[in-house]
């Protein structure tokens, strides 16, 4: 089963290498990885999609916790969450095909971000399924280039996975 982990880490140099190295040397498979700063500049958030059974996930979790730079790990898969990927696709677009492509862009609520003489560059966000479907629908026109971010994800509702303890804030509200 695929699990989406949110891993809060100290924003120290080398922290990505520590996490990535841990996955490779312990034989855990990373499906997708996205890193960026959070609302706290000292903390970065990694969203890691990892494939494995419960035992593997338990080891992933515990081994990650042993890294001094890792502050908190949450398995979002246990809860309701929203996830998004962003993809940019440069697709071949002859003038005769443009209308059809623009219709697809509309249907998928994508955006055209660059227009060239023979190509269109399209940006689309969504979950993995939507992005896969969009890519598939453009394939017949010929995809010249495709770039895809890793998945980022967030819990639904008031809950967060950034703080070790957010009960206090909840009480205040």
């Amino acid at each position: 089963m695929k699990h989406t982990l949110s891993v809060m880490v100290e924003n120290n140099p080398g922290v990505l290498a520590r996490v990535a190295g841990l996955f490779s040397r312990r034989g855990f498979n990373i499906d997708s990885l996205a890193v960026g700063r959070t609302e706290n500049p000292r903390v970065s958030r990694m969203t890691i999609v990892v494939e494995g059974d419960d035992t593997t996930l338990e080891q992933v979790n515990k081994q990650l916790h042993k890294l001094v730079d890792v502050i908190k790990i949450s398995d979002l898969t246990k809860d309701a969450y929203v996830d998004r990927e962003l993809v940019m696709i440069k697709v071949f677009a002859e003038p005769s095909e443009r209308a059809e492509i623009m219709q697809l862009v509309d249907i998928f609520r994508a955006r055209i971000v660059d227009v060239g003489p023979k190509t269109l560059t399209i940006e689309v966000t969504g979950n993995e399924g939507k992005i896969d479907a969009f890519e598939l629908s453009l394939r017949s026109f010929g995809i010249k280039e495709l770039v895809r971010t890793g998945k980022i994800a967030m819990l639904r509702g008031y809950k967060t996975s950034t703080k070790n303890n957010n009960y206090k804030e909840e009480e205040v509200s």
Partner: peptide, 13 residues
């Protein structure tokens, strides 16, 4: 620090 990443509890540059 890169070489000893997997064989130290932690390391610092």
């Amino acid at each position: 620090t890169g070489i000893t990443l997997p064989i130290t509890k932690h390391n610092f540059l």
